[in-house]
Design a protein around this nucleic acid. Structure first.
Length: 668
DNA sequence: CAAGTAATTGTTTTT
DNA sequence: CAATTACTTG
């Protein structure tokens, strides 16, 4: 064994997984048991044994995770360059690369990727075409339709069934909805558009083809998949398509952390690999290197399958004397926010950087009151899992310009750009769009067909975009797109100042990228890192607190974790409590949240919450602590009542009378 | 036909 | 409350 470092600090089970040979390998790794370290070391070992990096595929949950793992693995081998040649990323990101490469085989001249917002826009368009708007009858919103369609595809269930389950209010309109879905599929096919789900389906389809599939299989010898409990059917098909006999296949996961069933994932997929390949090696990682024992004591009670001693997590860390996690009862969301801000700043005073602390929540909206409090107190923070930066209107406007430059046949982007002009509305934009879908559009004809009032602005836009298309220099292209969009954004939004700044930033980033199409794909496929990178976030070197949904916190860890809104209705979400599957999944989400904490964990249960999570209506309702905080769970917690709120002492005012200022002198 | 205004409606998690 | 849709006005 060479000493380049990959084996350092690995325990026996981890080492077994790392050094395992070519047979199928299944690693069941509990939370915090060092699976990232194990995967990194396994990749490093492969690279060191002269496996060419481009023959290794590492599929992870986020692009960031793949990048971190491959670069660390490469560093262990002493060559930081080769990490970039490993095929790493999310299923969707890699699918995009593969499908782009084989676009011709699929009958596409180029891959036009529809991001979720585009899907909604297209649904909207089709709904109007089908006369399903303005008829007085209620019909699901375009966003709901897009969600429904994706769910049917992901879970491989008939749309009719999904409608009945998810939107019983609209079952009587099932025929119209399904008709719309058929039109949606037809339009996508006709124009060669692929949405996120299509990327996976196309990759699976390529693998299923006898000729292309064989070709693809020959390209990779090693396929490693992280978070396998969160893959759906299409992803299983891809993995088995890549390694049908299981050789060179490594899958890693933890069925207790399966939290994506709404996307068609199933924790059972992990065990399925063992059924499919009886000769597979199973390695269990059980020693927890992350958290202190008191945190694990709670986690073990929350974990589904409680009682099965094989699944109990045991802390490996030298046991520092630490207390139990805290359960904090508080009055309402505002008090909760104040107490968390206090606690976070207090820890910071005691030397714990903000970057070592996080606030986790079930839904992005649960952090509203806290965000206000943090802003007031000037505590820098970054939020993951809310509205994405790339989804804001003006950012999408610029992206539309970038997209029509790389692909003039992108109808939705043209339509969006046209609508941005004053005096150009839906009707004119729809009429003009077809004239622009060629490599060399007849500008004069377009201008002649547009309203007089819009002509000057439109001419300028088209000229800038033509300039952008005429150059190959990335920076010039981006600059020309910016010139096209900047005046439109300025004229279209009343609060244009901040928006123009954002647009400038994206254009700058686009200019720094040599491959514009790849930049756009990256931006749409990996919003996780891009939102934090481009948004008006604190700079990377600055210290900041993390706010995150539990889903976005998957795989991450902090020294101190605050879990907010741990009350029934919020966590578990009241959308999920109608059936056992839903509740079980919520429990796993709860488990994931708890196991993010290394040293200290505080759970907050406000007694009252607004009826609407937006908090705009003053009305609040009393809520009960989360059902997951059972008696057994409570035994592992220290309970803290909210410090008595200071109440105003009764003041003796005597006979004093004070009049309210009238300000009459201002209005005489 | 576009733009402005009034009414309505929707609420989880993400690639 | 914000975002979308429906209706009115120029």
């Amino acid at each position: 064994m060479s000493d380049s470092g990959w084996s350092e600090g690995l325990d026996e089970s981890q080492l077994e997984a790392v050094t395992h040979g070519a047979g199928p390998l299944v690693v069941m790794a509990g939370a915090g048991t060092g699976k990232t370290r194990m995967l990194t070391a396994r990749v490093a070992r492969l690279l060191e044994s002269r496996v060419p990096p481009e023959r290794v595929m590492l599929l992870t949950f986020t692009r960031r995770a793949a990048a971190a793992m491959t670069s660390r693995a490469a560093a262990m081998c002493g060559d930081s360059r080769i990490g970039q040649r490993v095929w790493g990323g999310t299923f969707h990101a890699v699918a995009h690369r593969v499908v782009t490469e084989y676009a011709g085989v699929l009958g596409l001249s180029a891959v036009t990727l529809l991001d979720p917002e585009d899907v909604i826009a297209l649904m909207d368009l089709l709904r109007a075409e089908h006369g399903l708007t303005g008829t007085g009858t209620r019909f699901p919103s375009s966003a709901k339709l897009a969600e429904l369609f994706s769910r049917a595809v992901n879970t491989q269930r008939p749309a009719r069934e999904v409608i009945g389950e998810e939107m019983p209010d609209f079952v009587h309109q099932s025929d119209e909805i399904i008709g719309l879905f058929r039109a949606f599929m037809a339009r996508k096919r006709q124009q060669g558009l692929l949405d996120f789900d299509d990327l996976l389906l196309c990759w699976a389809q390529l693998l299923a083809d006898p000729v292309i599939g064989a070709k693809l299989r020959r390209r990779w010898d090693w396929v490693l998949v992280d978070e396998y409990q969160d893959v759906n059917r299409a992803q299983v098909e891809i993995v088995t398509g890549l390694r049908p006999d299981g050789s060179g296949l490594t899958v890693v996961g933890d069925d207790a952390q399966a939290i994506y069933s709404f996307r068609g994932a199933s924790g059972a997929h992990l065990g399925d690999v063992l059924d499919r390949h009886p000769e597979a090696t199973l390695v269990r990682l059980q020693r927890n290197f992350r958290s202190v024992q008191p945190v694990l004591d709670l986690a073990n009670v929350i974990r589904p399958g409680y009682g099965d001693s094989r699944l109990q997590l045991t802390a490996d860390r030298a046991s520092v004397r630490v207390g139990k996690p805290l359960l904090v009862h508080c009055e309402d969301a505002d008090t909760e926010a104040r107490m968390i801000a206090d606690a976070v700043l207090d820890s910071q005073q005691n030397g714990l950087p903000l970057k070592e602390q996080a606030v986790l929540m079930r839904a992005g909206s649960h952090g509203r009151a806290l965000e206000v409090e943090l802003a007031v107190r000037n505590v820098p923070y970054v939020k993951y899992g809310g509205i994405r930066f790339v989804d804001t209107a003006h950012v999408r406007d610029l992206i539309a310009a970038l997209r029509v430059v790389t692909n003039p046949r992108d109808e939705l982007s043209w339509y969006r750009l046209l609508c941005l002009h004053r005096n150009l509305g839906r009707a004119y934009s729809r009429a003009l769009t077809p004239m622009l879908l060629t490599a060399d559009p007849d500008t004069n004809a377009v201008l002649a067909s547009s309203p007089d009032k819009a002509r000057t602005a439109l001419a300028a836009t088209l000229a800038h975009l033509a300039t952008a298309r005429s150059t190959e220099v990335a920076a010039d292209r981006a600059a020309a797109c910016l010139s096209a969009v900047r005046p439109l954004v300025r004229a279209h939004y009343t609060d244009w100042q901040a928006r123009v700044e954002d647009v400038d930033r994206i254009a700058e980033a686009a200019g720094a990228h040599a491959d514009l199409a790849a930049f756009i794909a990256e931006l749409t496929l990996d919003p996780g890192s891009s939102s934090a990178d481009y948004a008006k976030a604190p700079h990377k070197d600055e210290d900041y607190l993390t706010l995150s949904t539990v889903h976005s916190a998957k795989g991450l860890e902090w020294s101190s974790v605050h879990l907010i809104h741990a009350v029934d209705g919020a966590f578990p979400s009241d959308m999920a409590v109608s059936d056992d599957h839903g509740i079980e999944e919520e429990q796993r989400v709860f488990y994931v949240a708890i196991t993010r904490a290394r040293d200290t964990l505080s759970i907050y249960t406000p007694a009252r919450l607004p009826v609407d999570w937006n908090g705009y209506r003053a009305r609040q309702i009393h809520v009960k602590g989360s059902r997951f905080l059972t008696d057994e769970a409570l035994e592992t917690l220290d309970i803290q009542e909210q410090a008595a709120v200071l109440t105003a002492a009764a003041v003796d005012t005597g006979n004093a009378r004070v009049s309210i200022p009238t300000l009459d002198h201002l209005f005489g």
